[in-house]
């Protein structure tokens, strides 16, 4: 009986939450199965990381350190950005180091390297080095010691080779050369790099964080303590786009065969470039952008639910006031 008197908005308010889950699930599944091309706008914090990494192109006396500080629970947001940055490094001949301080990050770090390496002839010890897992308890001593000598701080790589014997380490000594640290985390782990590597040694620090943590890190961007930031899936999508537009750019040669033609970052190019999802053959290279399509639809659904919920709330409030 009471049900008959309820109007649409009141019914919406009393709706079983499981219907909402179903609608959100469909809002995600449909755009993933039927992908559409949406424009990815690149923000300045993402641009800054890209430009900094790109400035190390082809240099043996520069390297990027990627620190994996997360487990599988945040993989959906962080893994695409890790793969995108590694691809950028491999494509542009940029020396890259990887390290993790939590056990659960180790397989993800290996998986990211394995995924990004596909299609590149890069060699461990020459183009990149995986420092492997180091216990959290010695995180701060390692950070501090890296300021003097990385080979002493880490000593052996993940394959048990002494760092001093590796060709990649020839011109790399400390933070003067390994001049960018990108920390991927779903926590405030990047703050320790800011405190110990940035404040003490002036190293450039950037963050690849989950969206939950992004708002907390803006204050460090504003003060310049963070060189740049990738915030959640959106940040990953932006970086994927930058890698495709610049580092992995292809142009036809005189025979019309597409050849790699990497180009430098330009705001004009990025503004006018539209990449079709169907043009990118490897799904791992567009995961974040496809995900952002679904994200857009899901956000629209949530906005509609919030509006309906609010209208329903005010209608039932007015009804109650009238009765009283």
């Amino acid at each position: 009986m009471a049900d008959k008197k309820m109007n649409f908005f009141e019914k919406m308010q009393a709706l079983d939450r499981r219907y909402i889950y179903l609608v959100v699930a469909l809002a995600i599944i449909i755009p993933l199965l039927v992908p559409f091309n949406s424009r990815t706008y690149v923000t300045e914090p993402t641009e800054n990381i890209y430009k900094k990494i790109d400035s190390f192109t082809g240099r043996n006396d520069r390297a990027v350190l990627l620190c994996f500080d997360h487990d599988a629970s945040t993989m959906a947001e962080l893994f695409p950005m890790e793969v995108a940055i590694l691809r950028h490094c491999f494509e542009r001949d940029i020396q890259v180091f990887t390290i993790c301080f939590i056990p659960a990050a180790k397989p993800l770090m290996d998986y990211a390297l394995q995924t990004a390496k596909e299609g590149y002839e890069v060699q461990s010890g020459i183009d990149y080095v995986n420092f492997g897992y180091r216990p959290w308890a010695i995180r701060i001593p390692i950070m501090l010691k890296m300021g003097d000598d990385i080979s002493e701080a880490v000593e052996y790589d993940d394959e048990g080779r002494k760092l001093t014997n590796l060709p990649i380490m020839k011109e790399i000594m400390n933070y003067n050369e390994m001049n960018l640290i990108v920390d991927f985390a779903g926590s405030a782990a990047v703050l320790s790099w800011i405190t110990y590597a940035r404040a003490k040694f002036g190293a450039n620090v950037a963050a690849g964080v989950t969206a939950v943590m992004a708002a907390d890190n803006y204050i460090y961007l504003q003060t310049g303590q963070l060189t740049g930031m990738l915030g959640g899936l959106k940040g990953a999508a932006e970086y994927e786009k930058l890698v495709d537009v610049f580092a992995c750019h292809m142009e036809p040669d005189e025979n019309g065969v597409m050849q790699p033609a990497p180009r430098d970052f330009s705001k004009e190019i990025i503004k006018n470039t539209w990449i079709k999802m169907s043009d990118i053959k490897n799904r791992m290279h567009k995961t974040a952008r496809i995900g952002m399509n679904a994200q857009t639809v899901a956000h629209l659904m949530i906005i509609v639910f919030i509006i309906l919920g609010n209208i329903g709330y005010f209608i039932s409030k007015r009804k109650k006031d009238k009765v009283n």
């Binding site: 947001e77 893994f79 959640g232 679904a294 949530i302």
Partner: peptide, 10 residues
């Protein structure tokens, strides 16, 4: 919200 939806998308 974006983070939670991203996890579901993943």
């Amino acid at each position: 919200v974006m983070a939670r939806i991203s996890l579901l998308i993943g």
